[in-house]
Design a protein around this nucleic acid. Structure first.
Lengths: 228, 228
DNA sequence: ACAAAAGTGTTGTCTGTACACCCATGC
DNA sequence: GCATGGGTGTACAGACAACACTTTTGT
């Protein structure tokens, strides 16, 4: 490090990660029992510290991987939480990220190791430090993002039905949507590909499965659209 | 600091600030000639380091104040730039902020001291490190934000005309807007208060001045709207 | 009188929203 | 045959986009 920089005070930079999942009915978040002081044993977001030789985004990816074993996850910076006294253990600045995962992809071994648990949005327990604020901000950001970009699919299984997709939007927005209008809108973007298969778990008639068209999806992911 | 935290590697956390202004015709950004190594003498965003006992947001406010002498400025976190090698002088992570200032409020003494200069968006010079990327991201974010929240006023003088406001939006979006449709849309939000004064610098006829209604503005600032 | 910018309305098109019935199937 | 959830069309209302002329006033 050059001399000029040595005059400044170094700080610890942490990552905290809001991990969203969807079980078909509820939007959920994955929380862990904090395994170290301070506040050991309390519910917390998954977190960790940025290492000397890794980028901040890479640190976030590593931390998500540690808990879920998953790679190539939709993940985005949320906000930097930098109040002086936010962590009673010392001066730690936290970059919060949020991630969207397919809840079924996610094994239970790592989950047990970290004493992790899914919580529905209405059952989020008390969280350490400012993690509640992070959670609130993440929910708000997710709502905004999902209204304008087709990222919601990251929360669904590879093949999904239109009723499932609608239930996802309803869970995120805590509202009810009209089936006909929703279907028409989603299909008008032409990012869905209808399969010749039906999902028959949840109804006698069965609902057609869809996958999304990656190419068109990529374009919309950049340009945005307007779902809600 | 507690023992657990001492195991982790502390890092330097910098702030870089994209400062936008509007001169009635062009959207501009305030840049400085970097006054210290590395890359001393090159054009750069205004920046600095987060101190031990100040929050990250407070650091951003302080750095903006150092350059402009202004307080109570619209300012928002943009993104964390955390690549390992982004700064050749050492491992420095940068939180980028963007700020919107009224270009006329801004004196020239501090500007000379920092060798600062306004650049139109088409004339941004080469910038140090990843500052160009920050600038691009800030422009994009400004476009998004201004389409949904009435923050554009932060770039205009306290009293402004409808043609000025339209010129601002046209500059931000690099597009032309229809005068009639724009006026109707803006007035429909009922956040503007028409004054009995005209601005007569730019035309013989003169255009009515407006101020904005702070209360309604606050509400829209939170809820959002849809201008473009 | 003319140049230059401000101000003002109407219409057609598109998008959003509200709303109800039949279909396929497993039991 | 009936209960359950899946799938589909229409009509009305509000928003958006395109478009041209008159007004004011300084020179």
């Amino acid at each position: 490090m050059i001399a000029e920089y040595k005059l400044h005070h170094p700080l610890l930079l942490a990552i905290d990660c809001i991990i969203f999942g969807f079980d078909g009915e509820q939007l959920k978040a994955l929380l862990i029992k904090r395994g170290f002081a301070p506040e050991k044993g309390k519910w917390s977001l998954m977190g960790g510290f940025v290492k000397k030789d890794e980028s901040v985004d890479a640190a976030a990816g590593r931390i998500l991987d540690q808990l879920t074993g998953l790679h190539d996850i939709y993940m985005e910076q949320l906000h930097c939480f930098g109040e002086v006294d936010r962590d009673p253990g010392g001066r730690v600045i936290s970059m919060a990220y949020y991630a969207l995962i397919k809840i079924d992809d996610y094994g239970t071994e790592l989950m047990e190791e970290h004493q992790a648990q899914w919580f529905g949005m209405a059952e989020i327990p008390e969280l350490v430090f400012d993690h509640k604020k992070m959670m609130e901000m993440a929910r708000e950001r997710l709502r905004q993002k999902v209204a304008n970009y087709p990222i919601g699919f990251a929360l669904l299984p590879h093949k999904f039905t239109l009723p499932q997709l609608q239930a996802l939007y309803e869970a995120i927005y805590e509202t009810e949507l009209d089936k006909r209008n929703f279907t028409r809108k989603i299909l008008s973007f032409e990012i869905l590909q209808k399969l010749n298969e039906k999902e028959k778990e949840t109804s006698r008639k069965g609902a057609f499965l869809y996958v999304f068209d990656k190419k068109k999806y990529k374009k919309l992911e950049k340009d945005g659209f307007k779902i809600i």
